[in-house]
Design a binder for these strands. Structure first.
Lengths: 146, 146
DNA sequence: TTTAATTATATTGTGTACAATTTAATTGAT
DNA sequence: ATCAATTAAATTGTACACAATATAATTAAA
């Protein structure tokens, strides 16, 4: 039917897309983080790994992947780069040799002090209020939970 | 001060992050699109290019980059892959030889028919309502506009 | 307990992303 | 008109991201 066909086709416009703003905004966030994290020699995904390790001390590759929604194809090379920069150690478990435990080095622990100002700096760089960001987080959490 | 130091440090936990859900949700969206777009031989960024071209017929690399927030380092190889798949043509302007015009081939135009069901399929796959997605879009648009 | 199934990580290959640089073409100021 | 500045794409290099597969270790089933 003409009406239905038009209705469907109209959704195929970039301005009508609801997912594109999410995709573009996620990239924008990473771009805003970049100069701040550069001072710590971290990329955004590497910063996420540090956040988990600052909180949990030690994690297996799998545990990091669960928390950050990343697979070993992404994490293995990423963690090797972090090991090269001496932020983490990668030690294969002697109990179960399939498992690689990721831990912070002293340098990695110390980096937390330098990172303390990042959340504040980011909000200022993006010029958003904590309320708006929290609202956004709550909606996404609600949608993504299912 | 002790209180302030703790307050700042507490933000450095993955669960406290407001940007991580956006990052993870954007990846989740692309992962939900993947099997649907595979039937059209498109990736998500390539699908975005098609959305723009279905609407505007012809675009320069720069115009695509402006609308999709992608630079030539991303677009040039991406568009070459789409040219290889015969969805678009890349023709250097004779008026201004710096410019490369991207246009749809007949195959590219025809693909719109097959794509008509994608928006609907995606919402079903993600199990979200149009209202929730629209709410999300409005908040992001408000935040990202500045 | 030998083998089959499962698990954890690593590897390979393709495709984004983007900074920095390069190349070539066009514009603008003198 | 000439040359410097600007512009548009392309290139190079680094770093994700993920599907598919491989490898090795552990567990489970007979």
């Amino acid at each position: 039917m003409y009406h239905n066909k038009q209705t469907m086709k109209d959704q195929l416009h970039i301005s009508e897309q609801v997912c594109f703003p999410v995709y573009a905004f996620a990239k924008e966030i990473i771009n805003q983080y970049r100069p701040l994290l550069e001072a710590l020699e971290l990329t955004y995904p590497q910063y996420l790994v540090m956040l988990v390790l600052w909180e949990y001390k030690e994690q297996t590759v799998n545990q990091l992947g669960d928390k950050l929604k990343l697979d070993s194809g992404t994490l293995t090379p990423l963690l090797k780069r972090m090991e090269t920069k001496a932020f983490v150690t990668r030690i294969r478990s002697t109990v179960d040799e399939r498992i690689v435990n990721i831990s912070l080095t002293e340098k990695g622990v110390a980096l937390k002090e330098k990172a303390a100002c990042i959340p504040q700096q980011l909000m200022e760089a993006m010029n958003v209020s904590a309320e708006d960001l929290l609202l956004l987080k709550n909606i996404i959490t609600k949608i993504a939970k299912k």
